[in-house]
Each structure stands twice: as C-alpha cells, then as structure tokens.
Design a protein around this nucleic acid. Structure first.
Lengths: 300, 300
DNA sequence: TCCATTCTCTGACTCTAGTCAGAGAAATGC
DNA sequence: GCATTTCTCTGACTAGAGTCAGAGAATGGA
C-alpha cells in the first residue's frame, strides 16, 4: 500500500480525533458520565427493552443494570417488566430524561457548529463536502457481501423492497406475475446463488446470479437500499458476481433491465457491459446487456 | 448556521469516531495502557525533559512521575538528572523502549492501512483526497491571528524565515540593506501594526500593516510557513488587514511584490487587488497592487 | 410437574486515569 | 547565607468503566 497515503490517513486520524475529542469533552462531557449519556441516547424517544440495549452497546448485563439504576434514581428513566414476558424489562425516558437527551442532542449540534464556525462560507462548503465523502467511503468499507439462501429473512426483506420500488418506478407499475421471475431454486446452489449486502448487520442490498448449465450466467434482482446508495455498492455487486461467474467457468454474463432505472443502465455501461439484442422476452425489459468475463484458473 | 451542514458534520463525527475508535483499540490498545503509550510516543527518538513532556501532554506532575516510574521498571526508558540543572530530569528511550515505540508506529500504519484496505484504488484515492481536505480545513480553523509587537520573539522568528526565503527564491538573492525596509516603529502602533498567525501556539505566519498619516495603508512582510500553506492563511491575512485598515479610516490598501512570488501575485489578484503603476522605488518589486476598501462605520 | 434456560440484578473486584497536598532536593535572587 | 522558587516525587484519594460469579424470578419444553 502507498506509504504517502498511509501518512495522510495518519495525519487525518490525529487531527480529527484531537479536534473532535477536545470539543466532545467540552460540549458533551460535562455533568453526566459518558456511560450513562450513551445509554440515555440509545434508549431513544420510545423506549427499548434492556436486552436490546445491552446488545447494541455491547455491554455487560451487570453494568447496564447498574447504569439504569443510577438513571432511575436520578429520575430520568422508568424501568418496568414487560407484561407478556415478565423477565424482560422495558426502559422508557421520563419527561426529565427526554429533556436531558435533548440537551445531549443540542450539544452535538453545537459541537458540529463549532467545527464550522471559524471558517468562511466557501471553506465550510468544502469541509462539509469532504466530510460527506469521507463518511461515505468509510461506510462503504464496512459493508459486507454474504452469500445467503434466497429464503433467508434478509434476502426476503431486500426482495420485497425491490419489488415495491419497481412498481413505484415503472410507469406501468410492476406485476410479479407478468414478469419472468426465476423461482427461488434458480438462485440457490447448484443452479445459482444469492448475495446480500449488510451494513452494521442490517440488509441494504441484494443481487442474484443464475447459473443455467446450458446458457450464460445471468444477473437478476440487483437492488441497493436508498440509504446505502452512492457507496459504490452496485459496482461492487457486479465485480463480485463477475468473479463468481468466472469461478464457475462462465465466460459470459448477461442481464436485462428497464429504461426507468436510468442510473443502473449507466452503471452497466460503465462497468463494461455492452447492449445486445433481446435474449429473452421479459415484458418489463427495454435493454439487454452482455459482458465477456475472464475465466479464472480454478473453477470450483 | 445551515442545519443540513450540521447534520452532515454530526454523521461524519459519528462514523469516524466509531470506525477509527474500533480500529484504534484493535491495533494500538493491546498491552500498554494509553497513558503510558502516549508518553512513550511523546518522549520521541532523542529524549526530552520531564517538564516539557508534562506541558505538551497537559498532565499532572505526580501522574507523569508515576507513569515514568512504571516505564522505567519495564526497562523502556531511563530517567536521569540534567547535569547543568540537577532538578530537571531527562527521559530517554532504551533500545527496548525504541522498539516498543516502533511497534506503536507500525500499529498506526496498520490502522491507516486497514481503513483503506477494503476499498478499490479509485475509492482509496478519493478517500485520501477527502481526508486531506478535511484535515487541512480543520487545521485552518485552529489557526489564530494575534496582533503582536514586531520585536516579539514569534514575530522575529517569522521575519527571519521570511528573509531567508526571499534570498533563496529571488534569482538575485535578497539583501535587506538594499530594500525599502520599514523600521520596526512603522509596524507598531500608532504608525502601523503587526500580526502573527499561530498554530498550536507555534508561529506559522506574519503580516505587517503600515498606516502612514498622509498615504494609503500598505501591507508589508506577509509570509506563511511552508508547513502551513494551503490553509487559506494568506487570504485570511488580507481580509484581516483590510478590516483593520478600514477601521483606521483608510480607503486604499496597497502593496508591492516580486515576480518570483507567483502564488502571492495570484492571491492578490483574486482577492480584488488591481495592478497599478509603481508607487515606490523598491528595487526588489516587479508588481504594485492597490485595492479600494470599504470604510467601516466606526473607525477607532 | 419439574428441569433447563433466559433475563436481570447484586456484590465483590480490577484497572485506568487522574487529582491534590505536601516533602525534599537543587537552583536563584538579594 | 538564607529565603524563595522550581522541579520532581510520594502517598492518599476519587471516579469512571468495566468484569465475573452467582442468586433469584419467569418462562418454555418434555
């Protein structure tokens, strides 16, 4: 890896942690210890059960219990057993707790403001744009692609969202019954595979690959959640599927798409796909693409 | 301040502290507690005296003493009295200490590498560029401009560096005796003023303003340290001097410069200065600039 | 019905990261 | 030469942030 890049990243880490750290202590580290503050924040407006809280923050059960006791005696939260399972306890903010949480929120705003405050408006705009870029790329780096069964809850979640989006974006709506839908078996080994992208454990995208024995590999149902767009995930799916198709000895990858999905069409073209004549009669397709892929040395 | 910008900065803070924090713990937080690690790092290759160490890290003397004792018994440092002032003690790394410090260094490199590692090379380049921008702008925001006497050590430090740079950059060299040098009194109230820019307390730039009673205000000796360039400091000096000239009731600001200082010439033009005929016979000047400034309502 | 499991809580610890008050040695000012 | 200051060190604390080993209540499954 490039040493100059490493050096720059280190400088960035140093400056950012120093500057943000100092301001963090100033605006947020005043009265309440950060353990309690984090908890207060994570409880949220509508309350949660203790178990989930513990899981999200990765804390010891005894420790959380003690923190909650302390918040309770300070009158910021109420803890009570759930009536359908009296082992599980639910935490809720009191009015006072809500106000304290609001103060934390305001402190975060002030922190952010004080980073921008000394700059003129052109510099602010540049800083914010660069922060956005850093944030997106760091987030992109934490997304994982995992092969799952198309029946997996995460896969189904993505597929439902995908169909919902199609019926919204296609001017004619989208009726699954009219489309050439692969049955689930076609996207499951050995006849295919299905990938789910996850960010912090939550599914944020999917893509399927059909591997028919007598025809080119075919990409189906590629979708990225709106909140996870602009992370280069589409391109990453394509690269991953290409590698996997090659690993299965396929030399051609193809797909069809609807003209309403403009950004997708652009993605395919810029990823080396070339438009070809219709290779199926999918009623919702306007474009058909194909790409030659390099065969890897050791197909599985 | 723009709420959308605030929101973005908050997202940035959250993502960066989370991601960098986790990796920090993973790569650097292993055996040695961070207090000791920070100290080990700050001692540096060539050793320092305890007082300076304490000052740089802002720690209690008792605490530092204890940390040093612990590092000493671990065989990582030696502490001995300075022979010219036996109250002051000097810390030096042993071979073992140097190796441990090297490991911290390597850990920092690994941390930086692991941020880049999951990305493809185009994304890496974009991330590094954005980090550089963020780093520069955050650094720029911590630079202060203070009015000081031109005889102040920080002012003299800057002026020496300035002259050294001129004699290096001018093809003919630079001989202060041949130049039209304002005497120090001209850059000191009431006949003028002198500004020093400081970053973390270190002087990183200067600019003087002459305020002759019978002629336009004139900028002299503007300089920015090489390590502090690209922070918009030149532009900030100009804006500050303009404001101050206006506050003293001046309607015109002028300056002369040498053609070897190309970036400076560009800065003046883009800051609204217009080239005019020579208004003095400074032998080192090739360009003379002037700008009309708006008079503020309440001149001091 | 009863045994295992799940969930929360309590008590008893540990380790960092400090703070504060003073003691003692060395240097400095007058 | 003596008082004052400077610099470092020691002892005695504190608070935060956890960890670990059970105990006890509720629940679920056979």
């Amino acid at each position: 890896m490039d040493q100059a890049q490493i050096e720059l990243v280190r400088r960035f880490n140093r400056t950012v942690t120093e500057r943000v750290g100092v301001l963090h202590d100033h605006y947020l580290g005043r009265d309440r210890p950060i353990g309690e503050a984090r908890l207060l924040w994570e409880i949220g407006e509508h309350g949660t059960d203790v178990r989930r809280l513990r899981e999200r923050l990765g804390l010891d059960s005894g420790y959380v219990s003690r923190l909650l006791r302390s918040l309770e005696t300070a009158g910021l939260v109420t803890v009570e057993a759930q009536h359908d399972d009296r082992r599980v306890r639910t935490v809720r903010l009191t009015a006072e707790g809500r106000s304290e949480r609001g103060q934390l929120d305001a402190g975060s705003d002030e922190l952010a403001g004080s980073l921008l405050e000394p700059l003129n408006s052109a510099q602010r705009a540049r800083l914010v744009a660069a922060m956005d870029e850093v944030e997106r790329l760091l987030t992109a780096a934490t997304v994982t692609l995992d092969e799952v069964d198309p029946g997996h809850p995460d896969a189904r979640h993505c597929l439902e969202a995908y169909f919902a989006e199609l019926s919204e974006r296609f001017p004619t709506g989208f009726d699954p019954a009219r489309s050439l839908l692969p049955d689930a078996g076609e996207l499951r080994p050995p006849r295919g595979l299905f990938l789910v992208a996850r960010l912090h454990g939550e599914p944020v995208g999917c893509a399927g690959l059909k591997l028919p024995p007598d025809a080119p590999a075919e990409i189906k149902r590629m979708w990225v959640a709106p909140g996870a767009r602009r992370l280069g995930l589409g391109r990453r799916f394509l690269a991953e599927l290409e590698t996997r198709a090659a690993a299965h000895g396929r030399r051609t990858l193809r797909l069809d798409t609807n003209k309403a999905l403009t950004p997708a069409v652009g993605l395919y073209r810029s990823s080396g796909f070339e438009e070809v004549a219709a290779f199926n009669d999918e009623p919702y397709a306007h474009h058909w693409f194909e790409k030659r892929v390099a065969v890897t040395s050791s197909p599985e």
